[in-house]
Nucleic acid binder design. Sequence first.
DNA 1: GATGAATGAGTGTTCATTCAT
DNA 2: TATGAATGAACACTCATTCAT
Lengths: 227, 227, 227, 227
Amino acid sequence: MSSPSLPHPCAAELPKRERRKEARPGELLDAALDLFVEKGYAATKVDEVAARAGVSKGTLFLYFASKEELFKAVVRENIAGRFQLWNEEFERFEGSTADMLRYCYSSWWEHVGSTRASGITKLMLSEAGNFPEIAQFYQQEVADPGQQLIRRMLQRGVECGEFRACDIDCAVYAVLAPLIFLTLCKHTMATCVPEAFRTAPQGFLDIQLDILLQGLCAPAGTPIATR
Amino acid sequence: MSSPSLPHPCAAELPKRERRKEARPGELLDAALDLFVEKGYAATKVDEVAARAGVSKGTLFLYFASKEELFKAVVRENIAGRFQLWNEEFERFEGSTADMLRYCYSSWWEHVGSTRASGITKLMLSEAGNFPEIAQFYQQEVADPGQQLIRRMLQRGVECGEFRACDIDCAVYAVLAPLIFLTLCKHTMATCVPEAFRTAPQGFLDIQLDILLQGLCAPAGTPIATR
Amino acid sequence: MSSPSLPHPCAAELPKRERRKEARPGELLDAALDLFVEKGYAATKVDEVAARAGVSKGTLFLYFASKEELFKAVVRENIAGRFQLWNEEFERFEGSTADMLRYCYSSWWEHVGSTRASGITKLMLSEAGNFPEIAQFYQQEVADPGQQLIRRMLQRGVECGEFRACDIDCAVYAVLAPLIFLTLCKHTMATCVPEAFRTAPQGFLDIQLDILLQGLCAPAGTPIATR
Amino acid sequence: MSSPSLPHPCAAELPKRERRKEARPGELLDAALDLFVEKGYAATKVDEVAARAGVSKGTLFLYFASKEELFKAVVRENIAGRFQLWNEEFERFEGSTADMLRYCYSSWWEHVGSTRASGITKLMLSEAGNFPEIAQFYQQEVADPGQQLIRRMLQRGVECGEFRACDIDCAVYAVLAPLIFLTLCKHTMATCVPEAFRTAPQGFLDIQLDILLQGLCAPAGTPIATR
DNA sequence: GATGAATGAGTGTTCATTCAT
DNA sequence: TATGAATGAACACTCATTCAT
């Protein structure tokens, strides 16, 4: 029914050398992402990256003009065009806004938080100061679209009476904060939180959602934050 | 024969040279904190630190055995022993737990978030991987006590019926996340959030408290997070 | 069965592939000469040479064992065996020695000075220090025969009473200097002399000849250079 | 009456370290000039320069920002402001123009040709192509003033009837060529000419002067260069 | 104690050369 | 034969650290 032994259809026709050439940039970006996330930009040596990718230092420079370009490529490569998909899902979504928020957290964890892509956020937080150009790119490609999406969600909730009115600008960050926090727990606060929390944070996300939704859904006139 | 206007009581009796000598380490730590926070560990040159402190490079090494020791000293020095005071305040506090949480956020912003001490958190997030020893120290001195304090607050709220029962381990992080988030906004996500948000985040903290308290205070049986 | 218009007689009978193969070394030497002369030995990359010759880097090493060998081949290849011809012309020459000298300058410009062969002299002047072996070869093949030829010309002039007696060893260099100077003007002092001078130096050569001949032809007893 | 043992008056008051600091740039430029002239720019390693100056590589970079800056400094440093002095001498000169030309050659040999300053000319001839900026500087500071001086000398000779009229632009180069030639003999054509010629070329310069002056001084109507 | 000149191990980058295809 | 991906030795340059003054 299926061809029993062809390793990979598109690779089958290329001589080994060629296949490697196509794979090289990816393998290098792969190795580089790991090391940059683990040790930071400065502490990562290009020899290490090359070695981890199984090539020599010279080969790395065949594909990336400099360490800085390698870093930029790592960031660009891993910033998925996920926001377009998420925006489309937002448009089509027919359930409650609460469910939408739940889906949003869950999808984030599945496609970003639990994957190596989350390392990019850590990199930005650590290195943004030294790469303003990249930081701006990240903001345009990730930060701004993300905040927009959350804002639209909250506005939807308020407009259809599901959420009480509130300062949406601030509420956006209330939604965002737990995701950022979780990312950091995974990458740089490892020892500060229990292992289970980092690898299977569904409980944390659920609690956050509960609290958020309880907070956002309270009747409009609820007297809160009295002091 | 005695100078009539003494600038500083403890410095009064020392000749100028001596006074400076005592002040040196502090001035160096001061300069170092700023630079480490701004540029990261690797990108900070010891010459810069010395220059900013107004001394020569050699002098820096008179007080700190190495750049690494300087870094560690910066972290240690700025990790205030504030938790002892906060713990005492917790013991004495007589108001509602909601008010206690409000006081906690407010005090954190006043004594940590709005001060340079918040830079230490940023440093830990960026450099912890390369300084495990320091990371552990930070955890013992800051992370653990902080989480303990929050936990006790939440337990108090639950025990006296103010908060509904919930997974306290996770709720701790719900309280913590906004503070971490705010710290990052100030130090590494500057361009991602409005200026006003970073320098005067009372609105953000209020919203967070509202949402948190609404979420935590909901009647025990409140049906939430159905899915 | 025979192609009607043969582009080149000796290439006619070979299939295209073969022809190219034979032409390869020449094309490479061609490209290399240009680049070595223009940029110097060290600043010339073998990739550039290969690219200019329209082949890959690997192919270059098929024909020349190393960059150094390529350089040596460039020099050897372009050191014309012109001296044999010139020597024969010298033997047969029947006019005055002054005319012979004029012919010599003119022929040098036509066959060396105005052609790329003059680049070899520039190369020697620039790189001889790093290629003693090649420098020696150049001396044997070019410098010595050239000086010999000039010497014989001057001796002929003196012997037949056309030129006054003088230190011939030094006079040789008086004849040589303008040619060396002209070569340098073309290749490395471009900006120091007017454009017209470099590309059409007949005027310069004429003046030089005038001065030289006036100087060499003065009556034997002419009191000169008194001081 | 004289202090018997003070090594150097101006150095006596400085501590040894300080003195060295002032001497360092000069020592490095010294070493660099030798090596650049001997081996060319690319083949000269900064370590070698440092070693020859008796310091470490790091020290070199304390005084010169890069290898290129070192090279430029070498050229600038050795391009004496000799032309100002020569111009003044020209203004004051009261003898014949022939004597002036003799003095000119002799002074050039004494102050340039026989010294290491002549190495700069060799450097320019070899490396100008790779350092256009330096080449321009050299032209302005050396080539142009030199040609100007020669031109004025020739004009003086023609105007006072000593020299016959001729194309002065070309005659300038006739005067220049032997000096360039001699420089090259010393630095890159060493093996092409006898040892004595390079180190004591007075004979050569005399002959050149004789020929030049015979050529330039011939009566205006002398029939020359007939062809 | 304070200085800053000197150091040299370490790193990013280049490029002639090799060799599997 | 021709290719061009891969290599690694070599080099310019940095910067934490030392130490004579």
